[in-house]
């Protein structure tokens, strides 16, 4: 037990935020933000569907779902860590190694496929890579007691270095029956990756939102002291969250190989968009907390935004600027509301 108490700073949470007083104005504002963000989402979809040709076509929606699969799986993995560690960006749960994890897992998969191993072996190797990275994170955070931000930053660098060593910074093409199936189109000529994202989200949501283990994660993240007092295995749950997140990284790696017909460089660029997406996900939940479905919605929000811009033929130079502005607006609104609640 004494070890658990030492661990407290790791999952430390601002007391004000962890025990929100349900002030009426705060609730109203939270409700307004939640409704507002949903309205904004729907409004943007509406504007695009009225102005952008092809936007509402089944093929295009399927495309966006498929294109969101990789970032979605990563963001959901991060969401699990956010839930278990609390969503304070600096002291709470965060897994910065996720994008690098995806890159290394993809490289492992592509290398295995190139060496002539079958899909089963390659899948196992990629998932095991993700799992191991998650385990290292868990040991660093729970065992050594390093703040997740720093622990996973260090692991990110190690993993990115390993990827460089394995790939020599080159593209490793890969083609296997599984990859072909994943990059093809499923029913309604919607990309298979779109179905993968939906099924993955449903499974993750079922586990995180509806099982006792999932509820305990929330308890550990939001009220660590209470969780400990209630006898919950805080360390094991936090470690489990990092391992689950690592596994998501490995899974995303496989999807990435199918999408890019191999492993390519530059996976690290996924990190910040994924972090932003996962943080943004809170505005799509009832209590402004990270949820799996909320993260899916925020992933799709970003995906539809990028897609709509392209369909409207808005110069690609403007896309990231406008995207950043929207995200800044939503995140600052959430932060202000949280402060108000406290």
């Amino acid at each position: 037990m004494s070890v658990d108490i030492q661990l407290a700073p790791v999952i430390h949470f601002e007391p004000g935020v962890s025990t929100p007083k349900p002030s009426r104005s705060g609730n109203l504002a939270a409700g307004a933000l939640r409704a507002g963000s949903l309205v904004a989402f729907v409004a943007i979809l509406l504007v695009f569907s009225l102005t952008a040709p092809y936007f509402l076509s089944v093929g295009n929606i399927g495309n966006v779902l498929g294109q969101s699969a990789i970032s979605g799986v990563l963001a959901i993995g991060l969401t699990i860590v956010l839930i278990a560690g609390g969503s304070n960006v600096v002291t709470g749960g965060i897994d910065l190694s996720l994008a690098a994890n995806m890159g290394l897992s993809a490289a492992v998969y592509a290398t295995a496929a190139q060496l002539g191993y079958g899909d089963a072996t390659a899948v196992a190797a990629a998932l095991l890579t993700g799992l191991l990275i998650g385990a290292v994170n868990a040991i660093a955070v729970v065992g050594a007691g390093i703040v997740p931000l720093l622990a996973t930053l260090a692991v990110m660098n190690i993993v990115a270095g390993l990827e460089l060593v394995l790939t020599q910074n080159t593209v490793i093409p890969a083609s296997t029956p599984l990859l072909t199936a994943l990059s093809s189109s499923g029913p309604l000529s919607i990309p298979a990756l779109a179905y993968v994202l939906l099924v993955f989200t449903l499974i993750a949501a079922a586990i995180v939102q509806y099982t006792p283990a999932g509820l305990r994660l929330y308890a550990v993240g939001e009220f660590p002291d209470a969780a400990r007092a209630a006898g919950l295995p805080v360390r094991r749950l936090v470690a489990g969250a990092f391992i689950a997140s690592g596994l998501c990284g490995g899974f995303a790696g496989i999807l990435s190989v199918s999408n890019l017909s191999g492993s390519t460089t530059g996976s690290g660029e996924m990190l910040l968009p994924v972090v932003v997406t996962a943080l943004l996900g809170s505005v799509f939940s009832r209590r402004l907390v990270p949820t799996v479905i909320g993260t899916l919605l925020s992933t799709l929000f970003v995906g539809f935004l990028v897609n709509g811009f392209q369909l409207l033929n808005i110069s690609s130079v403007l896309v990231s600027g406008v995207q950043g502005l929207l995200i800044l607006l939503v995140v600052s609104a959430t932060t202000l509301l949280r402060r108000q609640e406290a």
Binding site: Y54, N60, P191, T264, G266
Partner: peptide
């Protein structure tokens, strides 16, 4: 590369 592939997919739909 991820962005490149997404953009090509959307272009094909356009």
């Amino acid at each position: 590369d991820g962005k490149l592939v997404s953009q090509l997919q959307t272009l094909i739909a356009q």
